[in-house]
């Protein structure tokens, strides 16, 4: 038997609320509060052969969400296990000040993850509208019934380059449009394959303002498809 750890919070009786949420495992193990000094970990027993299933991912997320209603919580990455409770307590003790500092930083805030992709047809319209020469080439090619293979290659190459530039511009514009309503932001690691994939740390009482900024930005930028997920535990703001 090992100890599965969901997250770290300030030691508070309100944490017991999270222990009513079923934990990982099959059958789900009850969630416990393991306190050490001023901080506490949300844990549950887990057998060594725990396999990450969908319901376990959900349990991890749900325990953290529920704990978040009681106060700031630092979510652990899914799957963190300690040999026993004593080792958890030792880990808490080792970096107590650091965890308290991070808890302070995320207090009263939630993570919102924003993903942006280009809408193909809309972005083509956009880059052709922004570049009269390119648009003229497109019109000429249409008038010629599609143009020769060589014409297509040339136009296609120019369009691809224009779309690539639009990607970079849009990435920057997403950031510019949304960072004002957030206190911090964390882009996904390079190579997410999206125009933008950024998490924002947003004060709870400014969440509506943040979402309104997303909506306004979406309306002004039909070439983008924005997807917002949140509020979430502050996964991206724990370090």
């Amino acid at each position: 038997m090992s100890t599965y750890v969901y997250g770290i919070a300030r030691n508070s009786p309100a944490l017991e609320r999270a222990s009513r949420t079923p934990g990982v495992g099959d059958p789900p193990r009850p969630v416990r509060v393991l306190s050490h000094g001023r901080i506490a970990a949300l844990v549950s027993d887990v057998t060594e052969e725990l396999r990450p299933k969908r319901r376990d991912l959900l349990a991890h997320q749900n325990v953290l969400s529920e704990a978040g209603t009681a106060g700031a919580v630092l979510p652990l990455r899914f799957g963190g296990m300690s040999p026993d409770d004593e080792a958890v307590a030792a880990a808490l003790a080792e970096r107590e000040e650091h965890y308290l500092e991070r808890l302070q930083a995320v207090d009263g805030k939630d993570e919102f993850n924003v993903k942006a992709d280009h809408d193909e047809e809309a972005v083509l319209h956009r880059v052709l509208a922004d570049d009269p020469e390119l648009r003229a080439m497109g019109l000429a090619q249409q008038a010629a019934g599609g143009g020769s293979q060589q014409d297509k290659m040339r136009l296609g190459e120019l369009i691809v380059e224009a779309v690539r530039q639009r990607e970079e511009l849009d990435r920057a514009e997403v950031q510019r449009a949304l960072e004002g309503a957030a206190v911090d932001s964390a882009p996904a690691p390079e190579g997410s394959g999206r125009v933008a994939n950024v998490s924002y740390l947003v004060e709870r009482d400014r969440a509506e303002e943040f979402l309104a900024a997303v909506t306004a930005f979406q309306q002004a930028n039909p070439q983008l498809r924005l997807q917002v997920n949140g509020p979430l535990p502050p996964y991206s703001f724990v370090e």
Partner: peptide
């Protein structure tokens, strides 16, 4: 849509093993 956050972000404690 949040899998990448649950699996790739969040706190990692060196002393722990990962499932």
């Amino acid at each position: 849509d949040v899998l990448e956050l649950i699996l790739d972000r969040g706190l990692v404690i060196d002393a722990f093993v990962r499932v």
